[in-house]
Design a protein around this nucleic acid. Structure first.
Length: 744
DNA sequence: TGTGACACTTAGGATCACGCTA
DNA sequence: TAGCGTGATCCTAAGTGTCACA
């Protein structure tokens, strides 16, 4: 990152756009906005239907026309538009960082101590400083109110005498005491654009080499057993393993697999094996199934050994040292070879994903770190020392020619800081969203078509939380769209529908080929504009032919520093959660009911963002089981109530201590069973409502965790009820800094 | 100004591990 | 204690957005 860029980032964080005057109005408008959205969203119940088929059928006929339109869109009719190449990236250029004197190994810590004292904030000791409570409270308030301001004004902290004396944070660690969590959010950030000063790791873990099948497991071609060469056999096993999967029923998958498989065959095999339908992989398939079964049946001792071995690998390769801290790596294993599982109607599904060799790998680490060693007899493609990026290992995959990375775990400082920053940008949008909304409404009346298109697209991104919709390489990926890449065929206009005026129906495949289907009433001016955009266009033409994500983001950047289309999704998701939590949580709810309210608020966001999932295979059965439990519990409750009544009658007659005690016991039993019943009923409601909705995606990526933390603190719900261990690790910063009065 | 390369986030499905129940 | 169901974790595809360069 250049100095300029660093400066820009700093500016972005300091929230230079003054939007405060809109603050109070925003709250009201946001709510109105949400209500409008809720009303419009309920039509979105259909799930992954056959609209993909429709796209396929039209594809051929559309292609020609589309090419033409595209040409016109960007170059007028001069024909200068050049098609992209085949989508494969050329090998990344070699980039070697000069030693700038920043790097140091933890091994050299002692000799560099003097430097650390002078530039202390860059190299904090692992131990966490002990702060007094008032200080902590003050810091938290500061964090909540204005993170950017703090970033701007904060100067490197002076260390106390004690701290200088002891790099372990002022006290010695007792034996077996769990290592304290590093509170990176209390420390300074790099301001020079660098992502780290020191990075050391052991490199990636490669998948085991191919093990040939035992002799008795055979492949049959045209009914006859045939021994395959190791290369061809390995690729055949990839297919055999997937025989149960729907992929192997798809024509494109089968075609691509067969084509790539033939490339791995010997010439003799190639001449014999000419049709996939004559191939019989069932023996291989059964063999792998038996193997997986055997793995499940392993003895306790064997399972323990496997677990220990995995733990050893994790300890050795799953961590790195970044700026004096041991940090967990996200994905330290190289992707094994196999068949490409593109989603939706991906034209490349079934192609062979090649085995990655050390010679394909680029290592990124500090110059003065102990470099990872390649496996014996091999070498890395390159070892570079680029501290402007966060990745540790990269390679180029052969399907799309894209670069794959090994990066740190979400709980790491480097990811956490970015996440925190993302939510701060969204909070800045909150301060000026009304001004931006007023502006795009005004732009609906612009004389210029490009401005009208931009304004309508932005309205959709804001109102419906649509993705930006970058352009994609045709024929290289599945045909999916976002807002800017919507085509005429993706919307339908109804001047009146179901007693509502100006209704727009959306039906398209979005990211991961997940269907977006929604009918929403829009403002008259939007409707009229859409009619205008559709004039003289064919179904496969772009709806917004004068717009792309680059133009839109450039405009957004002018409205607010750091604003892009993506920020609207984060903002709308978080603000919706906050509003829904306020609306749905009531003080007289018990804990399970509160959690149901939380999940309902979370669901509202997932619905908004169209986060769907395939209903679990066992869904119906598990609901039935739950219902059986509920029925049984109801019976229990009615029996317990009867017993309680009888005990009361006894007590009235006998009037002794024993019968009084019995009444108490029966009463408690009724209460206990009632509570159990209530929990089961809440669970059933929650599960039913969650059938096709994925809550995890929004929770992990869109909802400012401080909203959830504050809600937990306010209603004394333990954080474990809403975040599991991994999520708590990822959001440690928020759990530590948010109080019950945090406002997004 | 368009384009490709690159870096990074977001996403759903597959697989694993663990706890509950019969 | 085996079998099952479920939540947690892993995996990797598929997006977004920025930058340099022609």
């Amino acid at each position: 990152m250049s100095g300029d860029h660093a400066h820009k980032r700093h500016q972005m964080e300091s929230g230079s756009v003054d939007c405060n005057s809109h603050k109070h109005k925003d709250k009201y408008k946001d709510k109105e906005h949400q209500r409008e959205r809720d009303n419009s969203k309920n039509g979105n119940s259909e799930h992954r239907s056959s609209s993909e088929k429709k796209h396929r059928e039209k594809e051929k006929e559309q292609l020609k026309h589309k090419e033409k339109r595209k040409e016109e869109k960007f170059h007028g009719s001069d024909g200068k538009y050049r098609d992209k190449e085949n989508g494969f990236a050329s090998p990344p250029s070699i980039k070697v960082e000069e030693d700038n004197g920043y790097y140091h190994s933890i091994k050299h810590e002692k000799s560099l101590k003097r430097e650390r004292d002078e530039d202390e904030y860059k190299h904090k000791p692992k131990k966490v400083k002990v702060e007094n409570e008032n200080k902590v409270k003050k810091r938290r308030q500061e964090d909540d109110s204005d993170y950017e301001e703090r970033e701007e004004t904060r100067k490197p902290k002076k260390r106390t005498k004690e701290e200088k004396k002891d790099t372990t944070g002022g006290r010695k660690k007792a034996k077996n005491e769990p290592e304290e969590k590093w509170k990176w959010w209390e420390e300074e950030r790099h301001t020079d654009g660098s992502k780290w000063k020191f990075l050391e790791h052991k490199g990636p873990v490669f998948p085991p080499p191919y093990e040939p099948l035992p002799g008795h497991i055979r492949f049959y071609y045209d009914g006859k057993a045939m021994k395959l060469s190791p290369g061809a056999e390995e690729v055949a096993t990839f297919y055999a393993k997937m025989l149960d999967h729907e992929y192997t029923t798809k024509d494109i998958f089968r075609k691509n697999f067969f084509k790539d498989w033939r490339k791995e065959m010997t010439s003799e095999e190639k001449s014999k094996i000419t049709e996939l339908k004559k191939c019989d992989f069932t023996e291989m398939h059964e063999y792998f199934k038996a193997q997986s079964e055997a793995r499940k049946q392993m003895s306790k001792e064997e399972k323990r050994k496997t677990k220990e071995e995995n733990e050893r690998i994790l300890q050795e390769y799953g961590f790195c040292v970044m700026d004096n801290h041991r940090e967990r790596i996200g994905n330290f294993r190289i992707e094994p070879p196999g068949l490409f599982r593109g989603r939706g109607d991906h034209p490349k599904m079934g192609k062979l994903k090649r085995r990655i060799r050390p010679e394909d790998i680029i290592i990124n680490c500090s110059k003065d770190s102990a470099h990872p060693r390649p496996p014996p007899g091999t070498r890395w493609k390159e070892v570079r020392h680029d501290n402007k990026v966060t990745w540790l290992v990269s390679w180029t995959e052969n399907i799309q020619g894209s670069i794959k990375y090994i990066m740190l775990n979400p709980s790491s400082r480097i990811k956490g800081e970015k996440d925190w920053q993302k939510y701060e940008t969204a909070r800045r949008l909150k301060k000026c969203v009304e001004r931006i909304r007023a502006q795009y409404r005004e732009d609906w009346r612009s004389k210029e078509m490009r401005i009208r298109q931009r304004a309508v697209a932005l309205y959709f991104i804001d109102k419906l939380a649509l993705r930006a919709g970058n352009e994609k390489d045709e024929g290289e990926t599945a045909d999916t769209v976002g807002c800017c890449s919507l085509r005429v065929e993706h919307i339908r206009l109804y001047p009146q529908l179901e007693r509502q005026d100006f209704v727009v129906e959306f039906d398209f495949l979005g990211k991961d080929s997940i269907r977006y289907y929604n009918k929403i009433p829009v403002e008259k001016r939007v409707f009229k504009n859409l009619q205008l955009f559709l004039e003289n266009k064919q179904s496969e033409d772009d709806l917004f032919d004068r717009l792309n994500t680059s133009i839109l983001n450039k405009h957004l950047q002018e409205l607010m520093d750091g604003l892009t289309a993506k920020v609207f999704r984060t903002y709308n998701a978080s603000i919706t959660l906050q509003q829904q939590l306020k609306e749905l949580t009531s003080p007289d709810e018990n804990i399970p009911e509160k959690i149901l309210s939380y999940n309902r608020a979370n669901r509202a966001v997932a619905l908004l963002c169209n986060h769907q999932r395939a209903p679990p295979k066992t869904f119906e059965k598990s609901m039935q089981n739950l219902q059986i439990k509920i029925d049984e519990k109801k019976k229990q409750l009615s029996a317990a109530k009867k017993e309680h009544k009888a005990a009361k009658a006894d007590a009235r007659t006998l009037r002794d201590e024993k019968s009084k005690k019995a009444v108490e016991m029966k009463k408690k039993a009724v209460e206990r069973i009632s509570e159990q019943l209530m929990k089961l009923e809440v669970q059933a409601t929650d599960r039913e409502e969650n059938k096709q909705i994925a809550l995890g995606t929004s929770k992990l990526n869109y909802l400012d965790p401080r909203i959830s933390v504050a809600w937990c603190k306010k209603w004394t719900v333990s954080i474990e009820k809403i975040y599991n261990k991994t999520q708590r690790e990822k959001f440690a910063w928020a759990i530590d800094m948010a109080d019950d009065d945090f406002e997004f």
